[in-house]
Design a protein around this nucleic acid. Structure first.
Lengths: 222, 222
DNA sequence: GTCTATACCGTGATAGAC
DNA sequence: GTCTATCACGGTATAGAC
């Protein structure tokens, strides 16, 4: 799951300055939030002049939006496609809850494991935004509501008789667990005394998918 | 679940300036994060001079820590007590997964519903910190690991044969869902077209508790 | 001890010269 | 595209009022 341009961190010399600004901004915004990062830190990390970020993107907020939007189309497409595939395979019966959740989540794991750190940082940034009362309200719906509602539609079909409020609350639970996974805070490492690692995305999703499916069935099952 | 001093927002005139600083800082840090708030905004909101925060708390970071710590002892005690109570009621058989999770989560709902906005803001701040790669690493363990491990011990007993890695990953899922609930971002409101509200904490926990119990049983069940 | 006024000095975003 | 200047704002120290 590569981005369109070369976003491999190991080849910084060959990426355009514009892309380097986006890469560094992505990483820093993900770790420190919007206000925790200065344009000077971004410029310094990208080895460009302070003013170049403004030249390419305008205001700091515009750069923030540019980072958030850069990978969104690709990601939405990958998840949409994953859902379409399980629906096609399942035929008229429709896919199971597990299959739908798998289609919702696995593309994220794949992105995190491409070896392109950019995807890890990007998804940590999505986690930051989704969990923020300030940014979440402003930025999540435009970018993700359409895709999420596709999945909720599929779940509604797989769980006949489920009320919409139950479906949305179950989605909320899944979204929260996913958000904390994307944030990759190292918390589970400390809590478990090193037994688990928040960077072990395979383990995270392997546990998340059946866990969430069971939760959905419990609340929304017939 | 009142704080020791008067933290009712409606009686600002009667609270000490020191407490007003904590109250305003709590609210602003929860919404905008550490770097998104200036001492001047806090002072202005509390209707005190800029220098007073430094006088009482020292550096900005010390104020941040003071806010984070102010309600933690009370909260940990309430949750510890809730666990102790279900354990006592259950006797030697030990409490069920549902009872343990209920003890873990309900005290938070109660705090959010006291009518004291301070508790809502405080818990949103905990959500901000827990989901932050930067702050989560630095602040969560010291404050919450001891309590969380009590609950994990109880769950280990209620789910004999469960591996510790499974238990920790299940806890991670629950913690993520809880974190997003505490953050109170209004996301579910927009997504559901107003059908659900992230401020409807009763609905949130009523859906969360059986959902999480089912997830734990699925992953850790015998 | 509690609190305010003010000053200091570094740093931030951004505009404009080149 | 780059460099520099600007000017507001940030955290914090200090002096002293009550």
């Amino acid at each position: 799951m590569p981005a369109k341009r070369n976003t491999n961190a190991s080849s910084k010399g060959s990426t355009s300055k514009r892309d380097r600004i986006l890469d560094v901004a992505e990483k820093l915004f993900a770790e420190h939030g919007y206000d925790g990062v200065t344009l000077r830190q971004i410029a310094s990390g990208a080895k460009v002049d302070v003013a170049l970020a403004s030249y390419h993107f305008g205001k700091k907020l515009d750069l923030f939006n540019a980072v958030f939007e850069r990978r969104s189309a690709y990601l939405n497409e990958a998840r949409h496609e994953a859902l379409r595939r399980v629906q096609e395979e399942a035929g008229t019966a429709g896919p199971t809850v597990e299959q739908i959740i798998e289609a919702f989540l696995r593309p994220l794991e794949l992105a995190q494991e491409t070896g392109d750190d950019g995807w890890r940082h990007y998804l940590a940034l999505v986690a930051y935004i989704n969990n923020s009362p300030y940014w979440g309200r402003r930025m999540m719906s435009k970018m993700f509501d359409s895709l999420v509602n596709e999945f909720i539609d599929a779940l509604r079909q797989a769980l006949p008789g489920a009320s919409d409020t139950d479906l949305y609350w179950c989605y909320h639970n899944m979204s929260g667990a996913l958000t904390l996974t994307l944030a990759d805070t190292g918390r589970i490492d400390a809590l478990s005394g090193g037994l688990c690692s928040s960077s072990d995305f395979e383990a995270a999703y392997d546990h998340m998918i059946p866990f969430m499916a069971a939760g959905f069935r419990k609340i929304c099952g017939s």
